[in-house]
Design a protein around this nucleic acid. Structure first.
Lengths: 117, 117
DNA sequence: GGGAAACGCAACCAAAGGTTGCACGTGCCA
DNA sequence: TGGCACGTGCAACCTTTGGTTGCGTTTCCC
Protein backbone atom coordinates (compact mmCIF):
# COMPACT_ATOMS: atom_id res chain seq x y z
CA UNK A 1 0.00 0.00 0.00
CA UNK A 2 2.94 2.31 0.59
CA UNK A 3 6.45 1.92 -0.78
CA UNK A 4 9.69 3.29 0.64
CA UNK A 5 9.82 5.99 -2.03
CA UNK A 6 6.28 7.02 -1.20
CA UNK A 7 7.14 7.29 2.47
CA UNK A 8 10.11 9.45 1.53
CA UNK A 9 7.81 11.77 -0.41
CA UNK A 10 5.34 11.84 2.45
CA UNK A 11 7.84 12.65 5.15
CA UNK A 12 9.35 15.26 2.85
CA UNK A 13 6.08 17.17 2.67
CA UNK A 14 5.09 16.19 6.20
CA UNK A 15 7.32 18.82 7.75
CA UNK A 16 5.61 22.23 8.11
CA UNK A 17 8.81 24.11 7.27
CA UNK A 18 9.29 22.11 4.10
CA UNK A 19 5.67 22.65 3.07
CA UNK A 20 6.14 26.39 3.58
CA UNK A 21 9.35 26.28 1.57
CA UNK A 22 7.56 24.62 -1.34
CA UNK A 23 4.81 27.21 -0.99
CA UNK A 24 7.35 30.03 -1.14
CA UNK A 25 9.14 28.54 -4.14
CA UNK A 26 5.86 28.02 -5.97
CA UNK A 27 4.63 31.52 -5.20
CA UNK A 28 7.83 33.48 -5.71
CA UNK A 29 9.72 31.46 -8.27
CA UNK A 30 13.26 30.09 -7.82
CA UNK A 31 15.05 31.06 -4.62
CA UNK A 32 18.23 30.43 -2.67
CA UNK A 33 18.72 29.04 0.80
CA UNK A 34 19.50 32.55 1.99
CA UNK A 35 16.44 34.17 0.38
CA UNK A 36 14.16 31.45 1.77
CA UNK A 37 15.64 31.69 5.26
CA UNK A 38 14.73 35.38 5.33
CA UNK A 39 11.07 34.41 5.18
CA UNK A 40 11.30 31.47 7.56
CA UNK A 41 11.75 31.26 11.33
CA UNK A 42 14.93 29.17 11.01
CA UNK A 43 18.51 29.81 10.00
CA UNK A 44 19.99 29.49 6.53
CA UNK A 45 21.74 26.26 7.46
CA UNK A 46 18.49 24.66 8.57
CA UNK A 47 16.90 25.71 5.29
CA UNK A 48 19.86 24.27 3.41
CA UNK A 49 19.35 20.93 5.16
CA UNK A 50 15.66 20.91 4.26
CA UNK A 51 16.53 21.78 0.67
CA UNK A 52 18.95 18.86 0.63
CA UNK A 53 16.15 16.55 1.78
CA UNK A 54 13.73 17.91 -0.82
CA UNK A 55 16.44 17.61 -3.44
CA UNK A 56 17.12 14.00 -2.51
CA UNK A 57 13.49 13.01 -3.07
CA UNK A 58 13.40 15.09 -6.25
CA UNK A 59 10.84 17.64 -5.12
CA UNK A 60 13.19 20.53 -5.86
CA UNK A 61 16.25 20.88 -8.03
CA UNK A 62 19.18 23.31 -7.86
CA UNK A 63 20.73 25.47 -10.55
CA UNK A 64 24.18 26.96 -9.85
CA UNK A 65 24.33 30.64 -10.74
CA UNK A 66 27.63 32.24 -9.88
CA UNK A 67 28.06 32.17 -6.14
CA UNK A 68 24.38 31.37 -5.67
CA UNK A 69 22.34 28.18 -5.97
CA UNK A 70 18.83 28.69 -7.25
CA UNK A 71 16.27 26.08 -6.20
CA UNK A 72 12.99 25.49 -7.93
CA UNK A 73 10.17 23.00 -7.52
CA UNK A 74 10.07 19.92 -9.72
CA UNK A 75 6.47 20.09 -10.88
CA UNK A 76 6.18 16.46 -11.95
CA UNK A 77 7.42 15.15 -8.63
CA UNK A 78 5.22 17.54 -6.67
CA UNK A 79 2.29 16.37 -8.77
CA UNK A 80 3.10 12.82 -7.67
CA UNK A 81 3.16 13.93 -4.05
CA UNK A 82 -0.16 15.71 -4.46
CA UNK A 83 -1.60 12.58 -6.03
CA UNK A 84 -0.51 10.56 -3.01
CA UNK A 85 -2.03 13.09 -0.67
CA UNK A 86 -5.39 12.88 -2.35
CA UNK A 87 -5.12 9.10 -2.63
CA UNK A 88 -4.67 8.68 1.12
CA UNK A 89 -7.34 11.27 1.77
CA UNK A 90 -9.76 9.57 -0.57
CA UNK A 91 -9.05 6.17 0.99
CA UNK A 92 -9.78 7.44 4.49
CA UNK A 93 -12.78 9.33 3.25
CA UNK A 94 -14.21 6.20 1.66
CA UNK A 95 -13.66 4.17 4.82
CA UNK A 96 -15.28 6.85 6.97
CA UNK A 97 -18.26 6.90 4.65
CA UNK A 98 -18.55 3.12 4.81
CA UNK A 99 -18.34 3.12 8.61
CA UNK A 100 -20.92 5.85 8.86
CA UNK A 101 -23.30 3.90 6.65
CA UNK A 102 -22.90 0.81 8.83
CA UNK A 103 -23.39 2.83 12.00
CA UNK A 104 -26.56 4.34 10.60
CA UNK A 105 -27.84 0.90 9.67
CA UNK A 106 -27.23 -0.33 13.20
CA UNK A 107 -28.95 2.73 14.59
CA UNK A 108 -31.96 2.15 12.35
CA UNK A 109 -32.05 -1.43 13.54
CA UNK A 110 -32.01 -0.34 17.19
CA UNK A 111 -34.76 2.22 16.57
CA UNK A 112 -36.97 -0.37 14.96
CA UNK A 113 -36.48 -2.78 17.85
CA UNK A 114 -37.13 -0.22 20.60
CA UNK A 115 -40.04 1.16 18.62
CA UNK A 116 -41.56 -2.27 18.16
CA UNK A 117 -41.27 -3.17 21.83
CA UNK B 1 -2.50 29.71 6.17
CA UNK B 2 -1.58 27.10 8.79
CA UNK B 3 -2.29 27.25 12.51
CA UNK B 4 -0.55 25.42 15.33
CA UNK B 5 -3.45 23.00 15.70
CA UNK B 6 -3.33 22.28 12.00
CA UNK B 7 0.39 21.58 12.18
CA UNK B 8 -0.30 19.20 15.05
CA UNK B 9 -2.84 17.35 12.93
CA UNK B 10 -0.45 17.28 9.98
CA UNK B 11 2.51 15.95 11.88
CA UNK B 12 0.21 13.41 13.52
CA UNK B 13 -0.75 11.93 10.16
CA UNK B 14 2.65 12.68 8.64
CA UNK B 15 4.28 9.67 10.29
CA UNK B 16 3.94 6.45 8.23
CA UNK B 17 3.47 4.30 11.35
CA UNK B 18 0.67 6.54 12.59
CA UNK B 19 -1.02 6.50 9.19
CA UNK B 20 -0.87 2.71 9.20
CA UNK B 21 -2.28 2.65 12.71
CA UNK B 22 -5.24 4.76 11.64
CA UNK B 23 -5.67 2.49 8.65
CA UNK B 24 -5.71 -0.57 10.90
CA UNK B 25 -8.16 1.00 13.33
CA UNK B 26 -10.45 2.05 10.51
CA UNK B 27 -10.32 -1.34 8.83
CA UNK B 28 -10.51 -3.60 11.87
CA UNK B 29 -12.47 -1.56 14.37
CA UNK B 30 -11.27 -0.62 17.86
CA UNK B 31 -7.93 -2.08 18.96
CA UNK B 32 -5.40 -2.01 21.78
CA UNK B 33 -1.74 -1.04 21.78
CA UNK B 34 -0.88 -4.72 21.99
CA UNK B 35 -3.16 -5.82 19.14
CA UNK B 36 -1.87 -3.02 16.91
CA UNK B 37 1.76 -3.77 17.71
CA UNK B 38 1.26 -7.33 16.45
CA UNK B 39 0.59 -5.92 12.98
CA UNK B 40 3.30 -3.28 13.06
CA UNK B 41 7.09 -3.48 12.86
CA UNK B 42 7.54 -1.76 16.23
CA UNK B 43 7.07 -2.68 19.86
CA UNK B 44 3.96 -2.21 21.98
CA UNK B 45 5.56 0.69 23.83
CA UNK B 46 6.30 2.54 20.60
CA UNK B 47 2.70 2.01 19.51
CA UNK B 48 1.51 3.29 22.89
CA UNK B 49 3.54 6.48 22.39
CA UNK B 50 2.04 7.00 18.94
CA UNK B 51 -1.43 6.40 20.34
CA UNK B 52 -0.72 9.03 22.99
CA UNK B 53 0.20 11.51 20.25
CA UNK B 54 -2.92 10.69 18.22
CA UNK B 55 -5.00 10.93 21.38
CA UNK B 56 -3.55 14.35 22.22
CA UNK B 57 -4.60 15.78 18.86
CA UNK B 58 -7.97 14.04 19.14
CA UNK B 59 -7.59 11.68 16.19
CA UNK B 60 -8.25 8.64 18.38
CA UNK B 61 -9.88 8.17 21.74
CA UNK B 62 -9.49 5.43 24.33
CA UNK B 63 -12.11 3.40 26.15
CA UNK B 64 -11.02 1.49 29.27
CA UNK B 65 -12.28 -2.10 29.25
CA UNK B 66 -11.03 -4.13 32.17
CA UNK B 67 -7.30 -4.51 31.85
CA UNK B 68 -7.40 -3.33 28.25
CA UNK B 69 -7.66 0.08 26.62
CA UNK B 70 -9.59 0.09 23.36
CA UNK B 71 -8.69 2.84 20.91
CA UNK B 72 -10.87 3.96 18.08
CA UNK B 73 -10.67 6.70 15.47
CA UNK B 74 -12.51 9.95 16.03
CA UNK B 75 -14.27 10.29 12.71
CA UNK B 76 -14.95 13.99 12.95
CA UNK B 77 -11.33 14.86 13.70
CA UNK B 78 -10.05 12.56 10.97
CA UNK B 79 -12.48 14.23 8.60
CA UNK B 80 -10.86 17.55 9.53
CA UNK B 81 -7.42 16.11 8.84
CA UNK B 82 -8.57 14.76 5.49
CA UNK B 83 -9.99 18.18 4.66
CA UNK B 84 -6.61 19.76 5.39
CA UNK B 85 -4.87 17.21 3.24
CA UNK B 86 -7.05 17.96 0.27
CA UNK B 87 -6.84 21.69 0.96
CA UNK B 88 -3.05 21.69 0.76
CA UNK B 89 -3.16 19.38 -2.22
CA UNK B 90 -5.69 21.57 -4.00
CA UNK B 91 -3.65 24.70 -3.27
CA UNK B 92 -0.50 23.19 -4.74
CA UNK B 93 -2.44 21.78 -7.63
CA UNK B 94 -3.87 25.18 -8.44
CA UNK B 95 -0.46 26.82 -8.30
CA UNK B 96 1.07 24.15 -10.51
CA UNK B 97 -1.71 24.66 -13.03
CA UNK B 98 -1.15 28.41 -13.00
CA UNK B 99 2.60 28.00 -13.46
CA UNK B 100 2.09 25.57 -16.30
CA UNK B 101 -0.24 27.98 -18.03
CA UNK B 102 2.32 30.77 -17.75
CA UNK B 103 5.10 28.51 -18.98
CA UNK B 104 3.03 27.50 -21.97
CA UNK B 105 2.30 31.13 -22.73
CA UNK B 106 6.00 31.95 -22.66
CA UNK B 107 6.74 28.97 -24.87
CA UNK B 108 4.11 30.08 -27.36
CA UNK B 109 5.66 33.52 -27.33
CA UNK B 110 9.11 32.10 -28.06
CA UNK B 111 7.76 29.92 -30.84
CA UNK B 112 6.11 32.88 -32.48
CA UNK B 113 9.30 34.95 -32.29
CA UNK B 114 11.59 32.25 -33.67
CA UNK B 115 9.00 31.37 -36.27
CA UNK B 116 8.67 34.97 -37.39
CA UNK B 117 12.44 35.48 -37.57
C1' DG C 1 -4.92 -17.41 45.64
C1' DG C 2 -1.59 -17.50 41.86
C1' DG C 3 0.07 -17.31 37.18
C1' DA C 4 -0.51 -15.06 32.78
C1' DA C 5 -1.82 -11.11 30.06
C1' DA C 6 -2.15 -6.06 29.29
C1' DC C 7 -0.70 -1.90 30.73
C1' DG C 8 2.17 2.25 32.46
C1' DC C 9 6.56 4.23 33.72
C1' DA C 10 11.54 5.05 33.53
C1' DA C 11 16.10 4.73 31.60
C1' DC C 12 18.70 4.49 27.69
C1' DC C 13 19.90 4.94 22.34
C1' DA C 14 19.82 6.66 17.70
C1' DA C 15 18.26 9.72 14.23
C1' DA C 16 16.54 14.26 12.74
C1' DG C 17 16.04 19.23 13.11
C1' DG C 18 18.34 23.32 14.66
C1' DT C 19 22.14 26.39 15.96
C1' DT C 20 26.83 28.50 16.03
C1' DG C 21 31.38 28.98 14.13
C1' DC C 22 34.46 28.92 10.45
C1' DA C 23 36.60 28.28 5.92
C1' DC C 24 36.13 28.81 0.86
C1' DG C 25 34.67 30.60 -3.58
C1' DT C 26 32.72 34.50 -6.17
C1' DG C 27 31.22 39.10 -7.28
C1' DC C 28 31.89 43.89 -7.07
C1' DC C 29 34.14 48.25 -6.54
C1' DA C 30 37.80 51.58 -5.43
C1' DT D 1 44.07 44.34 -9.23
C1' DG D 2 43.54 44.00 -4.28
C1' DG D 3 40.31 43.84 -0.87
C1' DC D 4 35.87 43.49 1.10
C1' DA D 5 31.27 41.67 1.24
C1' DC D 6 28.10 38.10 0.18
C1' DG D 7 26.58 33.38 -0.48
C1' DT D 8 27.75 28.54 0.40
C1' DG D 9 29.44 24.39 2.43
C1' DC D 10 31.28 21.81 6.26
C1' DA D 11 31.79 20.44 11.09
C1' DA D 12 30.73 20.29 15.94
C1' DC D 13 27.28 20.45 19.20
C1' DC D 14 22.46 20.49 21.39
C1' DT D 15 17.58 19.16 21.74
C1' DT D 16 13.61 16.70 20.43
C1' DT D 17 11.46 12.57 18.87
C1' DG D 18 10.85 7.73 17.76
C1' DG D 19 12.39 3.32 19.39
C1' DT D 20 13.93 -0.22 22.61
C1' DT D 21 14.55 -2.92 26.99
C1' DG D 22 13.38 -3.68 31.74
C1' DC D 23 10.39 -3.62 35.56
C1' DG D 24 6.37 -2.89 38.49
C1' DT D 25 1.19 -2.88 38.64
C1' DT D 26 -3.40 -4.14 37.62
C1' DT D 27 -6.74 -7.35 35.95
C1' DC D 28 -8.47 -11.65 34.29
C1' DC D 29 -9.17 -16.42 34.84
C1' DC D 30 -8.33 -21.13 36.42
Amino acid sequence: MSTAVDDELWSAIGDPIRRTMIDLLLAGGPGTATSLSERLPVTRQAVAKHLAVLDRVGLVHATPAGRERHFQVDEAQLARAVAQLSAVGASWDARLRRIKRIAEAIQRNLDENTGGD
